[in-house]
């Protein structure tokens, strides 16, 4: 099971480190990272394998969301199937 982690907000030093260390804590294995700039905001997308997650998926999503809020970032974790369903036939 894979999750898409999106991080948006104002650029600063250490965003990738922040998110990837949190992923490591809960055994989410990062598979790919890409960045993009859309409408003047920084956007980072990570694809992570969450099949061995130590905590329930919903709790993991909440943890990252809270971590982002503390740093003024918008972090969301979503199951990859929503993107596959919408964009692939």
């Amino acid at each position: 099971m894979k999750a898409v982690i999106t991080v948006t907000g104002k650029d600063s030093v250490g965003i990738i480190a922040l998110v990837s260390s949190e992923c490591a804590v809960y055994d989410a294995n990062i598979l790919e990272i890409s960045q993009s700039v859309l409408s003047e905001y920084f956007a980072m997308i990570m694809l992570a394998d969450v099949s061995r997650l130590k905590i329930p998926f919903g709790d993991f999503a909440d943890k990252l969301n809270k971590l982002g809020a503390e740093r003024g970032l918008d972090i969301h974790v979503m199951h990859e199937d929503i993107f596959n369903s919408m964009h692939r036939i």
Binding site: V4, T6, L31, E32, S34, S36, L38, A43, I45, L47, H76, M78, E80, I82, F83, N84, M86, H87
Partner: peptide
């Protein structure tokens, strides 16, 4: 990996 613009479109 999924297409970045597709991901951003869904999130938007």
């Amino acid at each position: 990996m999924l297409n970045t613009s597709d991901i951003l479109e869904t999130i938007n």
